[in-house]
Nucleic acid binder design. Structure first.
Lengths: 363, 363
DNA sequence: TTGTAGGCGTTATCAA
DNA sequence: TTGATAACGCCTACAA
């Protein structure tokens, strides 16, 4: 270890005095072996005799030493970090749950998870423009995003595996895990049908965005499913909220929707809302207007978020923790150079019956 | 650029063909300057003439280059990463919100946030044993943890700033941000008092843990506050749930508590629950037993989590996003070597009136 | 303001 | 199985 630069040297000396950070060479010296051997002994790769390994381990313990992730990263090109990108709020039920799932499988494997969230298309643009050049992660899991071809190309250029989570298509993803929104909505329609509801409505929450996986496809799914079950255009209606303002529906959304529902001319008894979050304030408003739920009208949500349980809301269940887990498992495999047999998978959804729906008693 | 090692060279060649990753030397060459100049031009530190900077920037853009975080990390010792450690689930309202707050201030400053969660004391022990040696982050924000002196010492040895978030004491933290549980509970008691409730109860949720900031201090705070307002021991009662089993109260918790409440011999009209999450199932059970809320009994929660709004629960409001933000701001300052004027701060709480409490009409 | 020459703490190659 | 040596990609002290 030659040291000609005084500045550095002083710096090191200070560091050693204050916190005694050992480096691999210290361990090598103490164990009486070379740095390479320490490296091999400590990171598991490469053959080292048991005897040597023990000596090295002992020396490392004594010096309170572990290998530096950063240095390894630089040498190997592996960062042991995974990006988790979501749109909207990190604290949202879906995102937080998915993060927990991702973390749950990645952390035990020694990976760090770095969440990011992005609010609009411009940010997304910028984010992905930087991403491939940063080589700051080994994989990226992307939740609910809609990707342009351009972004796809940028990502492909990064060489990083890109895993989709509830993304609208498999386009641009090396692997993906998702629910089938189409089927899920059909489950809801089927439920309303089975309960005897012959006039039904879908309530669409309009989230304007240039990048989010718009749940607007649920509207189409609803109509298609209803038609398959024999509902005519007069038997099933769509009501749309005004576009969100700073992350929430405008304040008069639910009174307006309630008014529309009650004045639309057909006696709707079954309502499916696009999300639980949308269903609950609607129910509150309906009850305020003396519409009894579920006696007069049944209401069905979508997601089975924690609030659905609180509100006793019948809904369609999906499991973001499991989605996160699966995404992470795929990421893990891809980072390890494996080829996935089934890169794109679909997780089932199911209805959960609670107290906001009931069987219609025919007149 | 001398290259004697064939292996590496091949590797580089392959990489260049496939993804054309430029390094700082490529930029230097293209811009016709030295690597140091590129470094200075791109990372902002150090003086570079405008003309040179422009040439460098242009070259970097052309080569689709940005500085590698990892390499910078190794050279500078700054990782530009912050750990965020929580106990319990990441998806829990408090944790997810705090994370969002932390992320909100750190991300724009170029920091990555790495969340971790830890379920028990053993994991905590292990986590902190590794932490100082890893030098994998520049600071750590710790949410709601109780620290032993031993852990404190280990952390201090790491040289990393440690910021507490709703931790029970400032002990062991370089900075902290918290609410005052004592005051918050007193606000609740005062509210019940002002509403005319003269027989009140506190419901304690028993979360057994060897590391979590136990909210059990709230019980004592409740008694103290009640006494200050003139409640006698006969006027205020404490009811405790059985210890959690796998993260939740035992299933018969709320029927049991309800029975206790109704049979305790004093006509309790005001209840404060330790958390919103605890209050809501209690209310459901009470209503099931034909106890009208708020007509017969007023119930008050604690937290103002999103579910409180859903359940129309009167509660004590705290703001974990803001707590996260403040913690991050402190972290930022400390990482930048600043000394905080007020390292330990307290954020106010306030009652939020909803539909589960009402004024008692005296007989 | 710019260039030179280490150094950051690992891993990988090759030879022994 | 082990060791010497050269990367990995950037930053910084110093001299120019």
């Amino acid at each position: 270890m030659t040291q000609t630069s005084m500045g550095r040297r002083d710096c090191n000396r200070i560091r050693e005095v204050f916190m005694a950070r050992a480096s691999i060479s210290d361990v090598a010296q103490l164990a009486g072996v070379s740095e390479s051997t320490v490296s091999r002994a400590l990171n598991g790769k490469g053959r080292v005799s048991d005897h040597t390994r023990q000596r090295v381990t002992a020396a490392a313990d004594e010096l309170n030493f572990t290998l530096s992730r950063n240095a390894s990263t630089l040498a190997t090109g592996k960062t042991m970090r995974v990006l988790f990108l979501v749109s909207g709020e990190l604290k949202a039920w879906f995102n937080a749950s998915a993060l927990q799932g991702v973390y749950g499988v990645l952390a035990p494997e020694g990976y760090d998870v770095m969440p990011s969230f992005i609010m609009n298309g411009a940010e997304l643009q910028r984010y992905f423009a930087e991403l491939p050049k940063n080589r700051n992660a080994d994989a990226i899991i992307v939740s609910s995003f809609l990707f342009s071809q351009e972004l796809h190309d940028q990502l492909a250029a990064s060489g990083m595996p890109v895993i989709g989570l509830n993304s609208p298509s498999t386009q641009g993803f090396d692997a993906s895990i998702t629910i089938d929104d189409n089927i899920a909505v059909a489950q809801g329609v089927q439920l309303l049908y089975s309960l005897g509801h012959r006039k039904i409505a879908f309530l669409h929450d309009c989230i304007p965005t240039d990048m989010l996986y718009s749940t607007s496809t649920r509207t189409e799914s609803f109509i298609a499913a209803a038609h398959r079950l024999g509902y005519t255009d007069d038997d099933c209606r769509i009501f749309s909220a005004e576009p969100h303002q700073n992350g929430h529906p405008p304040s008069d959304t639910f009174p307006k929707l309630t008014a529309q529902l009650l004045s639309c001319g057909i006696p709707i008894t079954g309502i499916m809302a696009e999300t639980d979050e949308f269903a609950i304030p609607l129910i509150k408003e309906l009850r305020k207007q003396q519409v009894r739920i579920p006696e007069d009208v049944s209401v069905l949500g979508f997601d089975d978020a924690n609030i659905a349980d609180i509100a006793d809301l019948t809904t369609i269940h999906q499991d973001p923790i499991e989605l996160g887990r699966r995404a992470a498992i795929k990421a893990l495999a891809l980072m390890r150079g494996k080829t996935l047999e089934h890169p794109h998978e679909v997780l089932p959804t199911r209805p959960v019956l609670r107290q906001t729906t009931r069987r219609v008693h025919m007149v």
